[in-house]
């Protein structure tokens, strides 16, 4: 029993990180029909921004993390939208998909060639100590990761539902044409979603890198996890992406412990296929909202 509890908590902690990546994925899809196949690399890269700030410029860890988030917002948010996505929108969906695949390759190879092909140690944000809760040994760091991720998600939800800009963004996501008629500055809202995506990816990066170690190839696994989480959750709902992320994290850990390590990766994918076949609107999605 204690074992299952520990597995679930560990799964929730990584799942919350997947959720951060999945939310951004969903937002981009909703507002600009961008399926971002470079999403995993967007989570891989910010840790390297922090490493550059720490190791090349000698800045302290907290400042480096802040810099990493800012640089991500700038490069993976604004520059990504203006340079990569905007010129591509008129070319249709397939060229954009190909372009994000190429971008993923570019970021992966870039991190490898300009930083290192080897994994890099990355400091924990929380001390790696244990606390005993109801007789179960839990890792403080895992609980910290879970709390941060949930706080970020809650803040995002508040922003989307309680502020004017947030509601305008939701309107844009649901139906850009109608939103435009209603006087919503659609272009600006789309830019905001790209910025939020980049910021969430950067948060996920800072939380996952102490566990995974910063490595150029991390995006492959993270991208897949975010992707599955987004679809399982329902491609059109922020809440869906959160539920999807947590579910994928927990299932992954339980599968690793009780199914087989060799096939652990396949369990979330089977889940993905089952959802596509039997509940394509996702865990929390609603059928009528789906674009395309």
């Amino acid at each position: 029993m204690a074992e299952i509890l520990q597995l679930v908590i560990a799964g929730l902690a990584t799942g919350a990180i997947y959720a951060l990546a999945a939310i951004g994925f969903t937002l981009l899809w909703q507002t600009s029909q961008t399926i971002n196949f470079a999403q995993g690399e967007f989570v891989m890269l910010p840790a390297f921004f922090a490493l550059v700030a720490m190791n090349w410029f000698g800045w302290p860890f907290w400042l480096s993390c802040l810099v990493a988030i800012l640089v991500s917002v700038l490069l993976l948010g604004m520059v990504f939208k203006v340079i990569v996505v905007d010129p591509m929108l008129k070319q249709g969906v397939l060229p954009l998909v190909i372009s994000t695949i190429a971008l993923g390759l570019l970021l992966r190879e870039g991190a490898k060639d300009f930083y290192s092909a080897e994994a890099q140690p990355f400091p924990y944000i929380f001390p790696d100590r244990q606390v005993s809760v109801l007789g179960v040994q839990l890792s403080l760091s895992q609980i910290g990761v879970l709390l941060i991720a949930l706080a970020v998600i809650a803040a995002l939800q508040l922003f989307l539902s309680r502020t004017r800009t947030g509601r305008q963004m939701q309107a844009t996501a649901q139906n850009p044409t109608v939103a435009r008629i209603l006087g919503v500055p659609v272009e600006r809202m789309i830019l905001y979603t790209f910025i939020i995506n980049a910021a969430l990816a950067a948060m996920a990066s800072l939380l996952i890198s102490p566990i995974y170690l910063a490595k150029f190839s991390n995006g492959e696994h993270l991208g897949l996890a975010a992707f599955v989480a987004a679809i399982v959750g329902g491609f059109n709902q922020v809440r869906g992406a959160i539920a999807g992320g947590l579910l994928v994290g927990v299932i992954d850990n339980l599968a690793a412990a009780y199914v087989s390590t060799g096939y652990r990766q396949s369990v979330p994918l089977i889940l993905l296929v089952l959802f596509i076949l039997f509940r394509p609107q996702g865990l929390l999605g609603r059928r009528e909202e789906r674009a395309v």
Binding site: E3, G11, T14, S217, N218, N253, A256, S260, T261, R264
Partner: peptide, 20 residues
Amino acid sequence: DLSTEAGQADFAADVIKLKS
């Protein structure tokens, strides 16, 4: 007798199993 994957990133489940 615990098998893990090459390139495996997350060892949480393996460590928990070893604890028991």
